[in-house]
Simulated scan of single mutants.
Amino acid sequence: MSECAKLVNSGMVTVRVKAASKLDKAMADARKAAIEKRELDICEVANYLYCGVRVIGGSETCLQFLEKNQEKYNIQVLKRLAVSAAFHTRQMESAVAKAFTNVEMQRAVCNVYSNYTGQVLPTKRSDIRGAVAKQVNSPVKWEQIQQVLFRKHQDEKFPRFYEVGPGRQLGAMLLQTSKKAHKSYTHFSC
């Protein structure tokens, strides 16, 4: 992924949209602006965080276009992220083939949800490898995974949500999505 990051100056922005927002049109127009400058036209959703909040990965030209035209497309919030590239976009395509070539995959002992599909990972090792590799250049579907979990447990107590690591992004998303689910959230720092 770090090799792919060197191919084009790119990054990511978090956006908050509402029903009247024209995010798809904004991204299409940003891609056109990059093509006119004869630059790589990467501008796509990289993360579906929760309802109305997305992370857009794009070339520097595309991100600047979005920033300059935020009001025109009725985008409520647009905030740059401190990252070195447009991860989970087609900029990472060449990393997919190399990503898990020599990694031995084992079947999970519990349900593991794929960022690529938003569903439980398949059980065949070859299918697991393919699904995990596709996560490198495909949007992360946090919102869709949360919806599956919430629908599955509508009439029962929510399962426990554990976040392990230095940040609390999962907790922040759960709080925005479901205060009831957030009550079952625990964070463990590293």
Rank of each mutant, 00 (worst) to 15 (best):
D41Y: 04
A99Y: 07
A5H: 12
A20C: 14
A86R: 06
E143Q: 15
I56T: 14
T123N: 11
V140T: 14
V53N: 05
S94K: 03
G11T: 13
N74H: 08
V136E: 05
V17F: 10
L174D: 04
S94V: 01
K98N: 14
K124Q: 11
N137H: 13
F65G: 00
C4D: 09
T14E: 14
V136L: 06
G57L: 10
D41R: 09
K124V: 06
G165D: 04
G167N: 09
H187M: 03
A172W: 10
A26W: 04
G118C: 14
T14Q: 13
Y73D: 03
S126M: 02
K18C: 12
T61P: 00
K22T: 02
R129W: 01
N47W: 11
D155N: 15
V132H: 06
S138D: 06
N9R: 12
S184W: 03
V148E: 15
Y162W: 10
R129P: 00
L170N: 01
D29N: 13
F87Y: 15
G52Y: 06
V15A: 05
E163M: 03
R168A: 08
V132T: 12
I42S: 03
V8C: 02
Y185I: 10
F100H: 11
L49G: 02
S94E: 05
V136R: 03
D41N: 15
Y48S: 08
K32L: 14
